[in-house]
Amino acid sequence: MRILGLVPARGGSKGIPGKNAKILSGKPLIQYTLEAAKAAESLTELIVSTDSDELMQLSRNLGVEAPFKRPDELASDTASSLAVVQHAVSYLQTLGREFDAVCLLQPTTPFRTASDIDSAVARFIDGGYDSLLSVREVPHQFHPDWVYLSSNDETISLATGTSTPKPQRQLLKKAYYRDGAIYITRITTLKKDSLYGDRIGYVVNDSQRFVNIDDWEDWQRAERILKEQ
């Protein structure tokens, strides 16, 4: 399969200003993702989608193509990942560059490796999925069967819609949350205006070297991980 590696990198960020270009232990944050993606053997091509002149130049200096400047309407806090991916695919199609799937790699999860990417792509292809996500296991105390949601009448009810929680931890099915490191989607799924489709595969990320950087606390944790390494 022809897999497009796509790194989405906005210039702005409310939590950490200029986050994607900010220096993390000697390297711009985006560089960690670009280096892993470049080393991955499963990606046919790799590009960066950004609205920032600085990030465009930084990507090119690192040997990664930034073929267009992302429109302002796709660079806001409310712009969806689906729209960003569809825009990139559509742009490349106008140049005659066709792909079977897109592998979305967000700079905010800097510690995924080339091996992680290749393993995810292999599982995606072998499983024939519409999409595939990298996930982490939900700790049992936060399992959906034990989580309560609040309602407008100041009561709570189980997220599953049942009236009674499962009494024993051993009865809980494994639950996962997406970790933001790897998303892979078929082009045919994107054409249906979905990033996921019906058949969603997954790979479990159980690495201790994980952080999804959203705020300063996350940034400091990333620095600690690198220092300990």
Rank of each mutant, 00 (worst) to 15 (best):
Q106P: 00
T164H: 12
L105K: 03
R221M: 10
N20R: 07
L105M: 04
G161H: 08
R209Y: 13
S157N: 13
T108C: 00
E65C: 07
V203D: 07
H143S: 08
G201V: 08
P139V: 12
V203W: 07
N212W: 12
T94L: 06
R178V: 11
G18A: 04
E45P: 02
V211I: 15
S157M: 12
G5W: 09
L29E: 09
V121W: 05
L158Q: 12
K38W: 14
G197H: 03
R221I: 07
V204Y: 10
Y177S: 11
P28L: 04
T109D: 02
L172M: 12
G26L: 09
S134K: 02
L24I: 04
G12W: 15
N212M: 11
K22Y: 11
G96E: 03
P107C: 01
Q31C: 09
P167E: 13
A66H: 03
K27T: 02
G180K: 01
W146P: 13
D116T: 05
V138D: 13
P67C: 06
A88P: 01
V204L: 15
G5R: 07
V203T: 14
I125T: 13
S76C: 00
Q106H: 07
Q106T: 05
P144M: 08
L43K: 09
A83V: 00
Y202A: 03
N20E: 10
R178I: 07
T164M: 12
L4S: 03
D116K: 03
L172T: 09
N20Y: 05
G18L: 02
F111D: 03
Q106V: 03
A88V: 01
L4M: 06
K27I: 06
L171D: 15
I187Y: 00
R209V: 09
A79I: 00
I3A: 10
G161D: 10
K174P: 03
A36T: 06
L24A: 02
D218H: 15
P67G: 05
Y91F: 13
L29P: 11
L133T: 06
N152H: 12
D198C: 03
D193C: 06
P28I: 03
T188D: 15
K174Y: 05
S13M: 11
D100Y: 02
A114I: 02
T162F: 15
H140C: 07
L43C: 10
S49V: 14
P17T: 10
R70K: 11
H143P: 10
Y148C: 08
G26E: 12
L29Q: 09
N205D: 15
E223D: 06
Y196I: 01
A37E: 06
A75R: 04
T162R: 15
R221P: 00
S42M: 11
I30T: 04
K22P: 07
K192P: 00
W219G: 00
D179V: 05
G161P: 09
T108R: 01
Q141T: 12
S76M: 04
K174G: 08
Y148V: 12
F68R: 07
S134N: 02
E217R: 10
R97H: 00
R70M: 14
Y91I: 00
R112Q: 05
G5K: 08
I156G: 07
D51N: 11
T50Y: 08
A159D: 06
